[in-house]
Computed example of a mutant assay.
Amino acid sequence: MHPFRKAVENRDEAAIEALLAENVVFTSPVAFNPYQGRAITAAILRGVMRVFEDFTYVREIANPDGRDHALVFTATVDGRQIQGCDFLHFDGEGKIDDFTVMVRPLSAAKALAEAMGAQFDRIAAEAAEAAEAEVGA
């Protein structure tokens, strides 16, 4: 089992964040522009853990060199079943530097967009706090 999958399935926020490169780019299934940086990506992933119910990875697909992984998942959002895939690319140090999520069907993607929209003030505040802590460290 891949360490990222293990961290997510254990809901280990610290382990998830530790696997993110400082310059990670996160491409959301419901936002047009990607998000850049570990602080915002970690905050988004914490938000996702708050809105997804019954989250389960059902398949793991890996490139032979280990730098690309696709993790297929199912979950429920606001009573709607969602199927999706996390596409992860790892840098030379084994950190996730590119993270793209795709989901289906459209009705579930809309429910996800609404649920994450309701979380966004909290996500932005968490990311700002984490970024300030990094600067101060």
Rank of each mutant, 00 (worst) to 15 (best):
N33C: 01
V77A: 05
Q36S: 06
V72L: 14
R38N: 12
F32Y: 13
N10H: 02
L45V: 02
D97S: 10
Y35Q: 15
E9M: 15
F4L: 12
S28N: 00
E22L: 12
Q81E: 14
F87M: 14
L112H: 05
N10M: 12
A108C: 11
K95Q: 12
A111R: 00
Q36Y: 02
Q83R: 14
E22C: 02
D12Y: 04
E13H: 13
R11E: 04
F52R: 01
I16S: 03
R5E: 06
G84H: 06
T56S: 10
M49A: 15
V101L: 00
H89M: 05
V25N: 04
V30A: 09
D78G: 15
A42F: 13
R59S: 12
E114K: 13
V77K: 07
Y35P: 01
A75V: 00
T74D: 13
D12A: 07
M102N: 15
A31W: 14
G66I: 07
F52K: 05
N10E: 15
V8H: 04
A14K: 14
Q36D: 06
V77D: 05
F4E: 09
L20R: 11
R11A: 12
I96P: 11
T41C: 10
L19K: 10
F52E: 02
I40C: 03
G92C: 10
V8N: 02
D54I: 10
P64C: 01
T27E: 09
A15R: 10
V25M: 04
V72Q: 11
V24P: 07
F32K: 13
F4G: 05
G79F: 00
P34A: 04
A111S: 01
P29D: 01
I61Y: 11
P34N: 01
A7V: 08
T27D: 07
F55L: 14
N23Q: 12
D97M: 05
P34S: 02
D98P: 01
F32W: 08
A7S: 11
H2V: 01
G84T: 04
V51L: 03
K110S: 08
V103R: 00
T100V: 15
T74L: 15
G92K: 14
I61E: 14
D54L: 11
A42V: 13
A113S: 15
L71G: 01
F87N: 10
F55H: 12
L20A: 10
E22S: 15
R11L: 08
A108D: 03
T76G: 08
I96C: 06
F99Y: 15
C85G: 14
F73H: 01
D12K: 04
R104F: 03
V51E: 10
A62W: 12
N33F: 05
L106D: 08
H69N: 11
E114W: 02
K95H: 13
I40T: 01
A14L: 08
F90D: 01
V77Q: 02
L20C: 06
V25K: 12
I16W: 08
I61D: 12
G79D: 00
H69C: 09
D12W: 04
N23R: 15
